[in-house]
Design a protein around this nucleic acid. Structure first.
Lengths: 334, 334
DNA sequence: CTGTTAGCGCATTCAC
DNA sequence: GTGAATGCGCTAACAG
């Protein structure tokens, strides 16, 4: 790899000048600039970004921490962020936290160590206190799908409670009374919030919790299958099941069908997230739209605005909305 | 951030010694090592990886270039690689090439500029020549889903032709004669290979190409919908459609059903890739298994072996296999 | 076993 | 406008 020295040699200027034309800071006469550019071209020169960051203390790259690298939800999130960032010539460095504290901490340290100019994180295991402290540090951090009042200007979040409410509410409005609920893992905040929304809708309609079924899932397909199986085994009346995310809903649909039951005639299914494949299922899944792409984009804009001083409008709280497709049946009261 | 100097100060040793205990190279007496560790602890010292790489010319991180950050296929691939790498304390730096030459080149340069110790790439737009030349460079590169004879020791690939053959062959064996094919974008090598396999199966069974339908798709759901619609509009006899990947198969199922047709009674559907959601579709999609997780893992092992000198067994060519589920109907000859 | 001395490739004061 | 000097934080010889 050619270095800045070789370029300055070939161009017959000092390395400071080369540096200047690279970053087009300070004025350089068009004539010498041309010489330098020619030399860079000829040598196939590429600045070493490690050296750049070491010297300048910034890297034009932002660290992204997601829980997993797979799955439609994180896929959309990563895509959204990367696309938005790249449009401003910033790069994303992505790593996974696997929803456990050790890996999340590890990932955060890694990203900070790589001198990312900022971090955008979807973290679930680290504490609010830790994040608040981290936010005082020299690397700006931004949170997605998590709201911490003390640093709410750094959060992009969804009203999960409202989403949970909408889901159950719509089922009730369509005549369902015997509802089952497959929650997310309750140590996760969003899972708790969605459940809270569910309970609010129930309470509002005078349906007591006791007369409903609930199983704790884990947001994965495997967990969804197990939960649905457990629910069915209870042999209790149930005309609809609301799932705390689409992956579980999808798996639930599978086991319902394996039991010879029809969706939505025997059991209606409601999801949450509105991931890409929700509309490709059969029947098409009714769900709650989680505007993760827009939120990912917004988090990148937040970074662009805060760290790189671009003029941008920011929205911190997003609202979910109901998407009615074909997995829910309207019950005619008899 | 604390630097190595502050640590050496506090511990009362030279910075060389601090460096030694960090990398536990060379022998350091347990006593001084303990002092150093205590100092590091106390200062919350974290080595600056930029400085480390600049000085050592290696970064303990490997660059991953995928076409997209979303989608089940790349999700599995990234997860597989990251998991395997992390088990050896190496980190992945991921970026997207968007299947176009500019972004792929850009991504490669970015990753090399970040002094990745190696690159694992799923590239489609750059030329073989470019890659061969790149492989002579100082950063080792490895290719996934692409076979270039000149550098086959750096390739982890799938026998796509065989996969294409298996798919069509199985349909023919089940009595289908009026086949339609939705290919991938034919400028992509894997799309061409899969199509070649399809043609071989056809030829072998004496079915002429003329009596089959074919439309070029683009591996996306949108493209799959359009292609299937086009196929249906031709109003020609068709008992089965084989799709060059699962995303398109999924979309094709959607439009088939919208036309009031039944799967597999009216039209059988065959996919390719066996992505996670293939088994969650209804009916469950029959497809060709692309062991992308294993291949991603293997590519990481290749890096571990070649670059980091671990003892590992490597397999370069993977074979696809037929997964029979419920989207294909056996036709009883009358 | 431990300390000293040079750079790694670049950005950034300062002078001129 | 342009060049010379200094340092970012660390590794890697080389001595001792």
């Amino acid at each position: 790899m050619a270095t800045i020295y070789q370029v300055s040699d070939l161009a017959g200027v000092s390395l400071a000048t080369v540096s200047r034309v690279m970053n087009n800071k300070a004025k350089v006469s068009e004539k010498t600039a041309a010489k330098v550019r020619a030399a860079m071209e000829q040598l196939g020169y590429r600045p070493n970004s490690m050296a750049q960051s070491l010297a300048s203390n910034r890297s034009n790259s932002v660290g992204i921490l997601v829980s997993e690298l797979h799955g439609p939800f994180y896929g959309s999130m990563m895509s959204a962020i990367e696309t938005q960032l790249r449009a401003s010539s910033k790069h994303a460095i992505i790593t996974a936290g696997h929803s456990n504290e050790k890996d999340e901490l590890d990932g955060i340290e890694f990203l900070i160590g790589r001198s990312c100019d900022a971090l955008i994180m979807h973290v679930e295991a680290v504490s609010d206190e830790y994040l608040i402290e981290l936010s005082q540090g020299s690397t700006p951090i931004f949170l997605i799908n998590r709201h911490i009042p003390e640093i709410s200007d750094k959060c992009i979040s969804l009203n999960n409670e409202s989403g949970g409410y909408l889901a159950t509410k719509s089922l009730i409005e369509q005549g369902h009374k015997d509802l089952a609920y497959i929650s997310g893992p309750l140590w996760k905040e969003d899972a708790r919030e969605r459940l809270a929304g569910h309970k609010r809708a129930l309470a509002e309609s005078g349906i007591s919790l006791e007369q409903t079924l609930m199983v704790e899932g884990d947001f994965t397909e495997t967990g969804g299958s197990e939960a649905m199986t457990e629910l069915l085994n209870k042999k209790l009346p149930m005309t609809a099941v609301v799932c705390a995310n689409d992956e579980m809903a999808c798996a639930a649909m599978g086991v319902i069908r394996e039991q010879g039951l029809n969706i939505p005639d025997d059991i209606s299914v409601m999801g949450f997230d509105n991931v890409t494949f929700a509309s490709y299922l059969y029947p098409k899944l009714s769900t709650i739209d989680y505007p993760i792409y827009a939120m990912g984009q917004m988090s990148a804009r937040l970074v662009l605005k805060t760290v790189y001083k671009k003029e941008l409008e920011i929205e911190h709280l997003f609202e979910p909305k109901l998407i009615e497709r074909h997995s829910v049946k309207k019950i005619i009261p008899q």
